[in-house]
Write a protein that binds this DNA or RNA. Sequence first.
DNA 1: GCGCTTCTCCGTACAAGATACACTGTATTG
DNA 2: CAATACAGTGTATCTTGTACGGAGAAGCGC
Lengths: 243, 243
Amino acid sequence: MQKLPTVVARMWGREPVSRRGPRPGLTLDRITDAAIEIADAEGLAGVRMSSVAARLGVSTMSLYGYVASKDELLTAMVDAAAPDPPEPGTLPWREYLSVWTRANRDFLACHLWLLEVSPLTPPTGPRTLRWLDRALTVLTGAGLTAAEAINITSTLSAYAASSATLLSAMSGTVDETGPEGLAGYTALLTQLVDAGTYPGLAAALESGAFGAAPDWVEDADFTFGLTLLLDGIEALITRRRKG
Amino acid sequence: MQKLPTVVARMWGREPVSRRGPRPGLTLDRITDAAIEIADAEGLAGVRMSSVAARLGVSTMSLYGYVASKDELLTAMVDAAAPDPPEPGTLPWREYLSVWTRANRDFLACHLWLLEVSPLTPPTGPRTLRWLDRALTVLTGAGLTAAEAINITSTLSAYAASSATLLSAMSGTVDETGPEGLAGYTALLTQLVDAGTYPGLAAALESGAFGAAPDWVEDADFTFGLTLLLDGIEALITRRRKG
DNA sequence: GCGCTTCTCCGTACAAGATACACTGTATTG
DNA sequence: CAATACAGTGTATCTTGTACGGAGAAGCGC
């Protein structure tokens, strides 16, 4: 029973209760909320210890009473930004996972900065773990082993993330490798790619498949890929039930 | 026909040729090689403009003749770190995509820092684009539209990345949210998760599914998930051929 | 009620790291 | 030989995260 990292303890409401001294004037929640607002508005780069503190009207250093480092702040932000996952209720597994994955992608799309932070950090907060839990529950409920369920869950998350990444690339809020977004990107590729060495790419560019992607098309794309995944899972589950 | 960003031009061998003045003493390649060696050895945090320059025996500022910013250096590193993709040859699409995805995961696993850099940057270098191209070629060759092929390719990449991420989480080189790696992570979860609010997770923890994952198991997991994906794709291709 | 303790929050100081700028010297060109 | 364009350098600056020590508030024991 080792000591929890500061921020983990606080995320789980396990901060040490103490009666002495002045009342804490802040909460981890208020801090993450402020940080998230900044990240949503200005991107992750706008999140500085100083900017977050300024928004709360406190000094930079006071934040360090709640998080041990900026990294910990980011960890806390990730968890705080996650909404509650959809509840399985009586939904059949396939419906539920479909809803789950879509909701997952949707909140990533609302907070694109999550894509820059979360990928490497395994979930440690109550909310992110709730997402994980619901998917596992449903999958094991459908007859899969825990190991399989974990694997599938992480694949679905990855799919949600990749889809959100595509969305972000389209919207143009990318790292500005050209003028902006998709348009600039395709322009760049057209300039660089020759049909000799990159036949498939050149063909795709000509066909315009890169260009066209308003919202509804992207949504169709999302459903398309999701169906692929769910089909695969379904095949497995059926196999398991027979075996 | 807009101007290419410095680094993109150089990655494609389009640097402006000039006869005047001293010969350039460096190459983008030598720079990225040095940077990659550092990243492999010390992680991405070890890559500083100064450390890269030091390794090459030049001054920090001389690098700026080759890349416009550290970000551009990272971009160039991503491309330089990618090996040549496997060539389709006469392989049937399913075999090829299987090899492709596995190779993709393998080189991510060799350069874990790629996971921290690449996710948001769409590919712009000759090598990364070659990977994209080969997958597109094979998929359109199997009868899919360019749009479908793009979608599938990005899903497979995402899967490779997610799998590499899992590997890295196991190996313990993660962001140290606990003592280290998987062991610490499961310990942490066990401490936090109660079966009431996190039934699925608690069950998975008890079953030990989180714990056991030596190399061969992980490889089995990888194949397992990949099969799921390929099955889904196969269903689609068959449908297309009939329709 | 008084001093001690134990907090929270703050101001200042420092360090790391990216990058702007102006300079030096060199190889090519006329 | 003079002019030019350009590679590489040194220094200065600016931005940020974070260590440290201090000041005051709130509870605690006498």
